[in-house]
């Protein structure tokens, strides 16, 4: 069964149109969502989570319209936009205590594990965390809440290479049980090569590619090395 299905999603803005965006997120899969800045990645994610009202199309979760089961959908599908910088004056401990009240399947053990793993001091204020640590804190919350699907908007941005690799390993582990799925947008092609099963490529609001990562790599990635044009220096030119 398809667990999350996006069908002909559309959003009209004065200067931008998201057109007929369709893709599926299947259990046990990591889907990479790529595209240039302004291509429509964040708009798509926001439409999927009812932060932006689509002008057309459907978001189906387990065959039901996500908007009609909004609370259950948000319970089972988590989303994370970059770094977690809400309530900067609150401590990590207090913000987590409030956040976890809302999740039925919250795992305190898992949360403690990620806090330790990421080296987050829960007595610190959110604003005292570095950008990378705020990303990690957001991920710790997202991973501990028991969501079946995680929608992540550039989760690796702001992370150092070691943390990035660790995170991608966590993604691979998470979907290994074939019950979870991850959909993440990124600009970093190496992230996709490491962990993505499927690729959705969006350009100017339209899905250009929606295929298996190996097909994508064969069609798009192996390009001949770029010729570096060397211009003579002014002294050589004269």
């Amino acid at each position: 069964m398809e667990i999350l299905e996006i069908e002909n999603l559309a959003k009209h803005y004065e200067k931008f149109d998201l057109k007929d965006v369709s893709f599926k997120i299947r259990p046990g899969k990591i889907v990479g969502f790529i595209g240039r800045n302004g291509a429509g990645k964040t708009t798509t994610l926001k439409c999927m989570y009812n932060l932006v009202s689509p002008t057309g199309g459907k978001i189906l979760y387990g065959g039901e319209e996500a908007l009609k089961i909004e609370k259950r959908f948000k319970q089972e599908v988590g989303i994370l936009f970059g770094e977690s910088n809400y309530y900067p004056s609150q401590t990590v401990k207090n913000l987590t205590a409030v956040t976890k009240m809302f999740y039925d399947d919250w795992s305190e053990d898992l949360y403690r594990h990620y806090l330790q793993d990421f080296g987050i001091d829960e007595n610190k204020q959110i604003k005292a965390l570095s950008t990378g640590m705020r990303v990690k804190y957001g991920l710790a919350l997202a991973l501990s809440r028991g969501a079946k699907i995680l929608l992540l908007d550039e989760p690796t941005s702001g992370l150092d290479p070691v943390s990035r690799d660790e995170l991608l390993d966590i993604f691979i582990d998470l979907v290994g049980d074939k019950e979870h799925a991850i959909f993440f947008s990124t600009h970093v092609i190496s992230d996709l090569e490491k962990c993505a099963d499927d690729i959705v490529y969006i350009k100017n609001g339209e899905i250009i590619v929606n295929e298996d990562v190996t097909d994508f790599e064969a069609s798009y990635l192996p390009r001949p090395p770029r010729q570096i044009r060397r211009y003579p220096s002014k002294r050589q030119a004269h």
């Binding site: 609370k71 259950r72 948000k74 309530y87 900067p88 809302f102």
Partner: peptide, 15 residues
């Protein structure tokens, strides 16, 4: 200032 709207809309609640 605290991005309360953004925080709350991401919780498992209705918009």
């Amino acid at each position: 200032a605290n991005k309360d709207i953004e925080y709350t809309t991401l919780l498992p609640l209705k918009k």
